[in-house]
């Protein structure tokens, strides 16, 4: 039954070509949440690269902030059907992080892991060449905890559940493994332009 006078969300014509299929434009920043906000004090925060690497490497918060950072402006699409255009971030490119570690040639996938136990999987080839960042500023301000601060993964070309909030490290693996939502019916890859929402899409 179609609800008389209900038109759902907006796909304004002037930005239609920037909205992936089935997505609607938002101008606010909806908060998505699977649990309480973890509150790791910055002096106990670290970021780690592990798994199929020569030897694991970790940064403290202070040393992470000293890494070369990059500003980037991207459109983001959430599988719950909202798209937000032109979001402004500052963070460290995964390419920069990879300069500090030798990744084994057998590594094909990355499992991002977060405070609170969240995980998500991304092909290694889609984490490099400027495609993924560990961001700690949003809109010129420190990233709010509610949006994943102090730092979150941002992989803007995939649905936003791949951009793990409260991220604490990346584990390099040789085969694909499902993360928190991928193990419960969500797509292993998650390309919004191909509408890869659920497994089998």
């Amino acid at each position: 039954m179609i609800s008389r006078g209900f038109f759902g969300r907006r796909r304004p014509a002037e930005v239609e070509n920037r909205l992936p299929p089935g997505q609607y434009l938002v101008t606010d920043f909806p908060v998505l949440s699977a649990g309480p906000t973890p509150h790791t004090p910055l002096d106990r925060w670290s970021f780690t690269l592990e798994g199929l690497v020569g030897s694991p490497v970790s940064w403290s918060w202070d040393s992470f902030l000293k890494l070369p950072s990059q500003a980037f402006t991207v459109d983001i699409s959430c599988v719950t059907k909202w798209t937000k255009l032109g979001t402004k971030w500052l963070g460290v490119s995964v390419d920069t992080l990879l300069q500090s570690v030798h990744v084994d040639g057998t590594a094909r996938y990355v499992m991002a892991f977060s405070d609170g136990g969240y995980t998500t999987n991304v092909p290694l080839a889609e984490m490099v060449n400027g495609q993924a960042f560990i961001a700690y500023q949003f809109d010129d301000k420190p990233l709010a905890a509610v949006h994943g601060g102090p730092a979150r993964l941002v992989v803007p070309h995939l649905y936003f559940w791949k951009s793990a909030k409260w991220v604490r490290g990346l584990r390099f693996i040789d085969h694909d493994e499902p993360g928190f939502w991928e193990s419960l019916g969500y797509n292993m890859h998650g390309d919004p332009w191909k509408e890869e929402r659920y497994s089998g899409d």
Partner: peptide, 23 residues
Amino acid sequence: RGPGVVLRCPTCRAAIARIVETT
């Protein structure tokens, strides 16, 4: 408010159940 529903223990906050509805 997320890709699915997470139900947590009121005592220890661990995830007790998760529900996802796909197409």
